[in-house]
Design a protein around this nucleic acid. Structure first.
Lengths: 150, 150
DNA sequence: AATTTGATTGGAATAATTCCAATTCTCACT
DNA sequence: AGTGAGAATTGGAATTATTCCAATCAAATT
């Protein structure tokens, strides 16, 4: 029987092995659902989405896969006060905005030089592995009073 | 019997009521232990410290008090990936450095204009109530090779 | 094909936090 | 000072998020 060329997961498996992580069907499907939607699902949400594609997967495996994917730099994790950990497919260094009204999380692009500037504020002897910048507040869809078609 | 002037908690009670929050003995003692040490205790750590002063207090009340103090702006809460929420007496807008080696959290001062600059990066319609900036990495105690007594 | 190593699984265990109903306290008002 | 309404506190149960564990399964290497 043909082993390849009947599922579109090839590039995914590629990307996983390229990172140095062994590829497994479970890791592929977890990675796939995170890339499929540009949002910030919790482990439980990932589990729910993954079960649609692979009904036999367990929650423990989803946690394991997420941890492995984070560790090998394929996804990032974010967290907010009193919220479960969320996972993010956007590897580009960026900030997050947590909209308290809708509960949604939006990516905020931050110029790279500013991120580096933030790092440079650390006292001598402090080496930052990661910088976490997040905003909390509310987002109004149409703020400027002029020019609204509707 | 005299109702006041026999405990040094007066200014604390003052500060609590001034914030608009009703002062209670429990809230005072929770506030007191957080101000007493410039660190970042978890709720359990606060509970342990508070019990030394008020052995009958319950953990639920510590959580309630912490929540109330945060809500009325008397303390701040911080959190890190896969760590319990921590509480911080430093109201001055600042960042945190989480030292992975020691587990310690250090306050990092950030110029106010830079914090405002960060806020200004948000797209129109996004209003940030709070900005959370935290670093994760390792801190070496003596970085500069010159000038060390001892 | 056998061995070894690593991954997955389900369920139990743990950790952090919240909920709840009963009691107690505080404050405002007689 | 006494009383009643509303708020805070309490202990324990419940919930949520996550990790642990031992057994099974799969894959890579000899």
């Amino acid at each position: 029987m043909p082993m390849i060329a009947d599922t579109p997961t090839l590039p995914l498996a590629q990307r996983i092995t390229d990172s140095g992580l062994r590829s497994t069907p479970q890791r592929e499907v977890v990675y796939q659902v995170i890339l499929a939607k540009r949002d910030h699902p919790t482990a439980e949400e990932v589990f729910a989405r993954v079960k649609a594609l692979m009904p036999t997967i367990s929650l423990a495996t989803v946690y394991n896969c997420l941890e492995a994917l984070v560790q090998y730099g394929l996804i990032k994790q974010v967290n907010f006060v009193r919220e479960p950990t969320r996972y993010c497919p956007n590897l580009h260094e960026h900030a997050h905005f947590h909209d308290e009204a809708s509960g949604e999380i939006h990516d905020i692009e931050i110029p790279a030089d500013l991120m580096n500037h933030l790092r440079s504020l650390l006292p001598a002897g402090y080496a930052a592995v990661s910088v976490d910048l997040s905003f909390r507040g509310s987002a109004c869809p149409a703020p400027d009073p002029a020019a609204r078609p509707n």
